[in-house]
Design a protein around this nucleic acid. Sequence first.
DNA 1: AAATATTTTTAGACTTATCTAAAAATTGAA
DNA 2: TTCAATTTTTAGATAAGTCTAAAAATATTT
Lengths: 224, 224
Amino acid sequence: MSYTKTEENYLKAIYSLQVKIGKEVSTNELASSLETKASSVTDMVKKLDKKELITYEKYKGVSLTNLGKEIAINIIRNHRIWEVFLVEKLGYKWDEVHEIAEQLEHIKSEELVDRLDDFLDHPSFDPHGDPIPDREGNIPVRKEAIALNELKKGETGIVVGVKNTDIDFLQFLEEMNLTLGKSIQVEKIFDFDKSKVVKTGQQTVTISKEVGSFLIVEKIIQTK
Amino acid sequence: MSYTKTEENYLKAIYSLQVKIGKEVSTNELASSLETKASSVTDMVKKLDKKELITYEKYKGVSLTNLGKEIAINIIRNHRIWEVFLVEKLGYKWDEVHEIAEQLEHIKSEELVDRLDDFLDHPSFDPHGDPIPDREGNIPVRKEAIALNELKKGETGIVVGVKNTDIDFLQFLEEMNLTLGKSIQVEKIFDFDKSKVVKTGQQTVTISKEVGSFLIVEKIIQTK
DNA sequence: AAATATTTTTAGACTTATCTAAAAATTGAA
DNA sequence: TTCAATTTTTAGATAAGTCTAAAAATATTT
Ligand SMILES: [Mn+2]
Ligand SMILES: [Mn+2]
Ligand SMILES: [Mn+2]
Ligand SMILES: [Mn+2]
């Protein structure tokens, strides 16, 4: 069985929203996530329901079937492996690869992504720190990955991911030098608005609570 | 400006047919090349004409404008560079890559193929021996490339390309061990049907006139 | 030069994915 | 609990690309 690019994008969007909100995904949520209209969503979810990729009940939203989930995870796997390729082999920066990966993830070939995965030495995380599912759909979990906001004053974390992939945000991080793998120490937290002064390498910058909620870090236990 | 996959495939097909037959491409030729119906072709060529990618006159066939030719050559460049990548980096065999390249050639990114080209050290020919146009559309020419049929008895050539990329034919060549880079010596030519006995490495095989017309070789001058 | 065969175009229909506008159902406030 | 706001669905259109069947034009034979 093979699916259209649109069907795959719907499944991927439903998967992400389902993980994020933990219950049935509404028509409007899907519409806004896919930048389309609610009426278009209704049409498409009927079709996906008929194909048994999702469960849809009128006015009650949708959720993925096992098959739908499998396909969604596979597309995400494709996307993230391509992103690794683009950054590791072609020298793209991590804030430049998403749009191209959106196209590459839909290339139809059982074998291609597996070969690419071999070629890249089976990466577990993509350039944004997101986990890469394996062929069977298992998703690696990172120990101790938390939002930067959960770090207390004096604590240190390594940037291992972001929760927001807007190009503007990624470029902001680049500017601030808060990129993947960077070590960040919390110097001060303002009670006022929970903004923070953090140190990364020689730089010291102030970041908002919002930015701190989007940055995923691995907390470093200081073994003195 | 960006074009649909279908438009790009039409331009590519028109380009190849135009090169092959040297005059306007007829509706039926295009239909059979694209495995579609003449009526569909008529609709599409009207559209491409309106976009000034081709010149179309009712009942008189089509030919590419400069813009159309430029786009066609660019798609061919994409296709062949991806084929090199698939063979050189991912370990595919040369008879396995065409279908995947048919998909990859349509990925929209100014930069991607240029980066891939760098990564592959600017190859001039693809795994089938076909020339790879550069960014400006210039197509490299190979000196002394001739059909195997043009070799006389006793002469030797190196396989540098094929004129038929049907998967059946490529697999036949694989079977016969007449693959790219192989040296072929003509042992005998039958007057009867111009079939040949040829030697490649330790193997000796008989090939038809047709096969000989599809194999491109570089003639080796025996400097005794 | 007609008649016939072939090629090409037109007409009308279908599919996928989308939209706007209006109707129906659900939610939430008074 | 009733009415208003919001969400969702339906109805009807549109655009891209395709198809079949029939009409029109061109090419080939007699
Ligand atoms: Mn991405
Ligand atoms: Mn990513
Ligand atoms: Mn090819
Ligand atoms: Mn090729």
